[in-house]
């Protein structure tokens, strides 16, 4: 499955992907205005302050939307069909995209509490993609 569109980390995003590989969801926080930020950038998109810092996220949030995909973007995703893509608003504020796993994927609802976990590292850059499971999953 190496032909999936694996992320290629860059200077902005490497700390995020390093965190995922270590089992830790990381977000940026602006040292000037305090805004939490995702996706990562070289500056704060709120106050335009330079060099936001990194912190460990609670990795908890709520589903703000979801879709079960039946027509994949490319044949490499066919084996996963149908799969659920969700937008999760983290407790810190930013929104991330993940696939839903386990029970929460069966009948997801907007507002469901979830926590972020990680797939085993895979692909040419050893990427551990984040996913979401029910907040009370074992």
């Amino acid at each position: 499955m190496t032909d999936k569109p694996w992320p290629v980390p860059n200077a902005d995003t490497a700390p995020f992907w390093d965190g995922c590989a270590a089992g830790e969801l990381r977000l940026q926080r602006c040292t000037a205005c305090g805004a939490a930020q995702f996706p990562p950038r070289a500056l704060c998109a709120q106050c335009h302050g330079a060099a936001p810092g990194w912190e460990k996220s609670s990795a908890r949030g709520r589903i703000v939307s979801h879709t079960r995909v039946h027509r994949p973007p490319s044949p490499t995703f066919k084996a996963d069909l149908p799969y659920v893509v969700a937008l999760v608003a983290l407790e810190e504020g930013p929104r991330i995209m993940v696939n839903l796993r386990d029970s929460v994927a069966e009948a997801p609802r907007i507002g469901d509490a979830v926590r972020i976990g990680f797939d085993p590292p895979a692909g040419p850059h050893g990427i551990a993609l984040p996913h979401a499971v029910a907040a009370d999953a074992p």
Binding site: P72, M97, I127
Partner: peptide, 9 residues
């Protein structure tokens, strides 16, 4: 990096 890996169209 943050949308396509999850199989979005």
């Amino acid at each position: 990096q943050f949308e396509r890996p999850f199989g979005v169209t």
